[in-house]
Design a protein around this nucleic acid. Structure first.
Lengths: 209, 209
DNA sequence: TATGTTTTGTACCGATTGGTAAATAAATAA
DNA sequence: TTATTTATTTACCAATCGGTACAAAACATA
């Protein structure tokens, strides 16, 4: 028995092998949810997009909610990863710039559906999607909190003045981000949104405090 | 025959009279669409909210799309009327202040559902709601254009400098408005959103041009 | 009272929703 | 080969979707 092989494949799966790539299927599901929102994406459309039948989806990913959550995790770890990465920028000003410019590039990337999935996945919905709706609200709040924490650190380090209202500043950035998402899904171009961001950054951080 | 009576009621309706108030019914429909969005509002929920049966809805207002459009018209003429009224403010600066402060008061009014119906009525949806989705995009663009025109007038009158990018400034305001709508529907309080607006207005219009 | 007109309530329509039972197919293990 | 395990396909489920047929009810006119 080869040790290397034993490590890479400690035990071969017993039954019939999966006939599709799980990551590719999740990408396809993400694309549908991203475009349609949670409720707007029907299992029929998802089935066609994934290229597999419904029982395979349910056996592999669980029900529609579970599939949405797994697609959402892939969204956060993949195309939307820049949002958490910018938190590590050395300065709050640099973070703000990278965040806003990165947001516009992300929202108008022609390889992606338009808009941010966290924002538009379930803004309004029927009663059956209330749980997903609340979860997305939580994701938005969570990121806003991280922005506020970053501004607090900048205040401690002296980059921002002592009287800075960090939570208001974070909510301001989140508001811009969410508005840009609506704009992008309404057809706004990269140049148009970059012009908006330029207006915002021109006087930043002068409008703090 | 009394002339006054003839003018007020030129001819009495022939058949069985309507058993409900059309405006009150439209208000109830507006409330459901405003909360749920176009697709999230089911005819069953609408029926229960209006207090009348489905055949009465269809006979009076038409199908779901027609009902939505009539509720939307009532929304624009009623709770959202301030948005067009602020365009008549004597100065662009005054308009901007009234627009942003009015937006926050509107979005956090406890008598209303949270969020702007034009923004959230059909941001993402299934294929069947594509027409309503596009119409709402049109309403957003239309208002943004009116903001841009107002800024152009302010440029002509000398209130704004000659190098002002009016369309970018209008898109900036629209972006803020749409972001505030998402924030309000996520549970942000009036005080929190007023703090955001205060940040924006503090340096306005310094970030022009 | 009889007739015509309109709205009402009930009961239903086909299509689609998310989700699944059951048989078959493809792999490994004995 | 035979048994076991897992995945696939087909066909279907109850519930809900938007929308409507039909008859009873409530009015004005004659």
């Amino acid at each position: 028995m080869n040790t290397k092989e034993a490590i890479k494949q400690p035990l071969k799966p017993r039954g019939r092998p999966l006939a599709f790539d799980q990551d590719a299927a999740l990408d396809a599901a993400l694309n549908v949810f991203w475009t349609r929102g949670y409720e707007g994406a029907s299992m029929t459309e998802l089935t066609e997009a994934l290229g597999i039948n419904k029982p395979s989806i349910y056996a592999t990913f669980g029900n529609k909610e579970a599939l949405f959550r797994k697609a959402l995790a892939r969204y956060l770890a993949g195309p939307a990863a820049f949002v958490t990465e910018v938190l590590n920028e050395p300065t709050a000003k640099g973070m703000t710039e990278k965040f806003l410019i990165g947001t516009v590039e992300f929202l108008t990337n022609e390889n992606n559906p338009r808009g941010c999935m966290i924002v538009q996945g379930a803004l309004t919905c029927g009663a059956g999607a209330a749980l997903i709706q609340q979860e997305l609200v939580g994701y938005r709040k969570n990121y806003e909190d991280k922005l506020a924490e970053r501004f607090e650190r900048a205040k401690s380090s002296g980059e921002l003045p002592e009287n800075t209202n960090c939570s208001a500043l974070a909510k301001y950035l989140a508001t811009i981000h969410q508005g840009l998402s609506v704009q992008a899904s309404s057809g706004a171009s990269k140049d148009e949104l970059m012009a908006v961001v330029a207006l915002i950054l021109k006087k930043w951080p002068a409008n703090i405090g």
